[in-house]
Design a protein around this nucleic acid. Structure first.
Lengths: 228, 228
DNA sequence: CGAGGCCTTGAACAAATTCAACAGAAGTGG
DNA sequence: CCACTTCTGTTGAATTTGTTCAAGGCCTCG
């Protein structure tokens, strides 16, 4: 496995892309690599913010607790993505948790050094600001959908966006390993409802299921529900 | 009314606060002041982003359309707040609209100059990034609440946050002029439901109503519904 | 191989929306 | 200034959507 100086060889990792060259050695000194097992929490809601993570390889769900048995998945993240940036700001506690959906590798940068990076690398700070702007837009769009779109549309939307983000395996199934439970948490509903609605979609011929794996057969039909 | 160089005398306006002194004259050249009537849109969803606004005086709702008769109010903003920052990013169209809830004064800065400001004023860029981080946290919290909290809790929450943000008039009523329709759009429900639930709250003695004006009598009782 | 978690299904239930109807307030235009 | 229209507020009843409860089967992991 090829790695560059600071342990990350991914084009999509904007930390790599945007830091000035002369900063990389310092970055390399300060980063730490971690392995995270499936189901393991990288950080958890309410715990103190110690730094920022970048996903080297793997998939994570970022989720926010409601009651003991209810949560909302706020974001799904994969290779190259930043994690823990919600810890920035006045509050020193993470407002969300991050859990690995598969065995993953991450790179950790402590908060102090991350902030120094921001000070020195204007371009990085600018991109980070833009990234936040994008996330905010996305979040507010999902918020509106959660408020007004019926469950079927939200599930259609979720499937389409997962399809777009994670692509498909060779045999056409969406390349992510997400339980129905998680899909429910992602769409703000219950797993029973997810199950029922996905069955409907299979009846309609827009979806094919094989165990927990999902294959989108008819994008148009899903789009009808998802709107726009 | 005292104004500083660029037409804004508010402590809470972080553009004023964070720009370097030598930048202010340039800022002054580029800003334009606008009056906005009650009910008038400052910018509307889908229209092209031309620049950034700061509220000099007044109140705005920032809202996102769903169908013709449904929307979600994403944010309420008052004196000193930034508006239109959701227009930053790759997309060149506003993802939301902003409508004045009362006669208001705003200050406009065209996008090109705003971006120059970001390049020159590191501190401002940093604060803007942090501001976005805060907004994102807030948004995701609201998203979770929308997904899992029953309507009564969401209304309680909304009232409490409006109380905190806008304060009260001399006679104790929340100092904002929001229709039930808008309150419904803010909490992601219908105006009939808002009405019924607020009646319940009056019965319980946690609220007093006088026309469209709302007075919180018992913060604790509301908090019971709002959780946390 | 046992236990716990996840999937599957049906039926009862509840929360909130929709529909309908009217009263009052606020604005509009002659 | 008054009639008219439109918007907001108020209320009850019907309806729908989605949740909750319950229970059995399956799969996986230790």
């Amino acid at each position: 496995m090829k790695r560059n100086k600071h342990g990350c060889d991914l084009k999509s990792c904007f930390l790599c892309q945007l830091c000035s060259k002369d900063w990389l050695p310092a970055l390399d000194t300060h980063r730490q690599s971690f392995h995270v097992n499936k189901g393991e929490m990288l950080f958890s809601e309410g715990s103190e913010v110690t730094g920022i993570y970048f996903i080297y390889k793997g998939t994570f769900k970022v989720h926010k607790k409601w009651t003991d048995d209810k949560e909302l998945i706020v974001r799904l993240a994969k290779d190259g993505a930043i994690l823990g940036h919600r810890g920035l700001g006045n509050d020193i506690y993470y407002p969300v948790s991050a859990t690995a959906l598969e065995p993953s590798e991450v790179c950790f940068i402590d908060l102090g050094f991350f902030q120094s990076t921001l000070k020195v690398n204007y371009q990085f700070l600018y991109e980070l600001m833009m990234f936040f702007a994008g996330e905010l837009k996305e979040s507010e769009k999902r918020m509106r959908n959660l408020a007004h779109m019926p469950v079927k549309g939200r599930i259609a939307q979720a499937l389409l966006s997962m399809h777009a983000k994670f692509g498909t395996t060779a045999d056409g199934f969406i390349d992510i390993n997400l339980s129905r439970q998680d899909l429910a948490s992602y769409t703000g509903t219950t797993y029973e409802t997810v199950f029922r609605i996905m069955n409907e979609m299979v009846q309609e011929g827009s979806l094919a299921l094989q165990g927990k794996h999902i294959c989108i057969l008819d994008t148009n039909k899903l789009n009808e529900h998802a709107g726009e």
